[in-house]
């Protein structure tokens, strides 16, 4: 029962990202800034660190593919980036102690890495002509602020749930 919740939570994050950009009109409040929700990435990083690394990478792979097919229509970018960032996050956590504040910062770092990676790939295939300074100013900073707010809201309940998830995995 405990274990069945995780796919549900991650799917909700997946769908909520789309609804978020559809409904929230930040552009009408703060002109010419783009905010991009990365709730999926945050929940996958938390799963990798607190739940199990194997499952985290697996979810990263599956939802990366889904994200590419359903939303971006360029298959490969998120399929590659989500597991890679989850892997890097788990690698960093090997040398850090798993304190919730540190994990939150690692998740934020993961979002930054994801944004940078996706920007570079889109720049290479000419999907954007934004230069780097513009990208940092218009897109990266507002995005990080939004995702930080999300992490702060979700960190403690998600950690509690994932601890019990890891417990259930160990008992099997």
């Amino acid at each position: 029962m405990k274990k069945a919740f995780l796919p549900l939570i991650i799917s909700l994050c997946f769908i909520f990202e789309s609804i978020f950009v559809e409904l929230l009109t930040v552009e009408s409040l703060v002109s010419n800034r783009m905010v991009v929700p990365h709730f999926l990435m945050v929940s996958i990083i938390f799963t990798t660190i607190y739940g199990s690394r194997k499952h985290g990478l697996m979810y990263g792979f599956i939802f990366g593919l889904l994200f590419d097919v359903v939303y971006t229509e360029i298959i490969g970018i998120y399929l590659f980036m989500l597991p890679l960032v989850a892997y890097i996050a788990s690698w960093i956590m090997k040398v850090m102690q798993s304190n919730i504040v540190i994990v939150s910062f690692v998740a934020l770092l993961g979002v930054t890495l994801l944004e940078l990676g996706v920007y570079e790939m889109n720049f290479i295939i000419h999907r954007t002509d934004m230069v780097f300074s513009q990208f940092v100013d218009i897109r990266l900073m507002p995005t990080l602020i939004l995702n930080l707010i999300f992490i702060v809201l979700i960190a403690i309940p998600l950690k509690k749930y994932l601890d019990s998830y890891a417990e259930a995995l160990r008992n099997d």
Partner: peptide, 8 residues
């Protein structure tokens, strides 16, 4: 729905 990654 809308593409959450706003590149495209």
């Amino acid at each position: 729905g809308r593409n959450p990654d706003r590149w495209n």
